[in-house]
């Protein structure tokens, strides 16, 4: 294996592995920008993965699978929103519960489907012209599914919406100072519900991607902790959709390398790598306090009650 093909393969797989992380992170950024932490990303992703596989297998088209994944993710997120926004339950507890619930339910429902390959996986899209460019073509434009490009486009769109539109001002204000938004007639609950639901949709699609496109089969626990990486990436990207791109693909590369390097380094150590790195990132973000913390939404994790200051 020569160097170019090794590099091409690595980058291409890193991109593919980064896609679910990117989708999940974009969703969590929106939820947290509106002031709601959702630790249920792992649960929403695995539910999305299961629903995506089951529906695509039954109906014979990956599109239906992804749609189902998005819908299931949204439902799970709405449950979290109901508990934390309407009932004002503790966001961390509710999110953890969602993760445990999702992992359990998907494992239970998925028993019969285990190990069977998907009959209608989502195929790669070779971009015309660009895929014929030497090196860069196979690296970036030949082996990717439509979700890679959609994810990148989504990051840009979500950035513009967040920082350059009326909606963005409302979302960020609700996350920073819900009382202010409330006093100007913006429904804090509605903004939070929508943002958390969007987070669920994106996490669901991220999970669906795993079972419908990346490895078209159902395996219990196939999200393998990606939801937790998403939480770390949200902080790592400083709640900025554009920065999430770099973070997601960097961690995608780490994931991929942990497979690639198995011949040389102990696999247990390698599998640890993305998570160890996530811990490092979180520790580092704690140190550079003034730089990172200042950008966390001011009301993150705090339920809003009108009349309290």
């Amino acid at each position: 294996m020569d160097w170019t093909s090794w590099l091409v393969g690595t980058v291409s797989r890193a991109l593919a592995f980064g896609v679910p992380l990117l989708w999940g992170t974009l969703g969590e950024i929106y939820a947290e920008r509106s002031g709601v932490v959702n630790l249920g990303v792992e649960g929403m992703m695995i539910l999305g993965a299961y629903a995506g596989f089951a529906v695509a297998q039954t109906l014979g088209h990956p599109g239906w699978g992804l749609l189902a994944a998005a819908g299931v993710g949204a439902l799970a997120a709405l449950w979290h929103a109901f508990l934390t926004v309407t009932l004002r339950a503790n966001q961390y507890v509710s999110g953890l519960a969602l993760t445990l619930f999702g992992l359990g339910l998907a494992g239970l429902l998925g028993r019969g489907w285990e190990g069977r390959p998907l009959r209608a996986p989502l195929g790669a899209v070779a971009v015309p012209v660009l895929s014929d460019v030497p090196v860069l073509g196979p690296m970036l434009f030949r082996d990717q599914t439509i979700l890679t490009y959609l994810g990148l486009l989504l990051a840009v769109v979500l950035w513009v919406v967040l920082f350059r539109t009326r909606w963005g001002i409302a979302i960020r204000s609700v996350g920073e100072s819900p009382a202010t938004a409330d006093s100007l007639g913006i429904s804090v609950a509605r903004v939070r519900y929508l943002c958390v639901a969007l987070g669920g949709v994106l996490a669901g699609v991220g999970g669906g991607y795993l079972s419908v496109a990346y490895r078209p089969a159902w395996t219990e626990g196939m999200t393998a902790g990606m939801g937790w990486i998403v939480i770390a990436l949200t902080i790592f990207s400083a709640w900025d959709p554009l920065q999430a791109i770099w973070g997601a693909f960097f961690f995608g590369a780490l994931y991929h390398l942990s497979f690639r390097l198995q011949a040389y380094v102990s696999p247990e150590l390698l599998k640890m790598m993305p998570y160890a790195f996530a811990i490092l990132v979180l520790a580092a973000s704690g140190f550079g306090r003034a730089r990172w913390r200042a950008r966390a939404p001011g009301a993150l994790g705090v339920p809003y009650v009108r009349g309290e200051r």
Partner: peptide, 28 residues
């Protein structure tokens, strides 16, 4: 209000534009 209802990390114009009807959707 006695305790100002302002979003401290945001700009003045963004604060005024928040929830203001009649502003354009893009770059309010």
């Amino acid at each position: 209000h006695q305790h100002f209802k302002l979003v401290a990390p945001h700009g003045v114009a963004e604060n005024v534009a928040l929830g203001l009807s009649g502003t354009p959707f893009w770059a309010p």
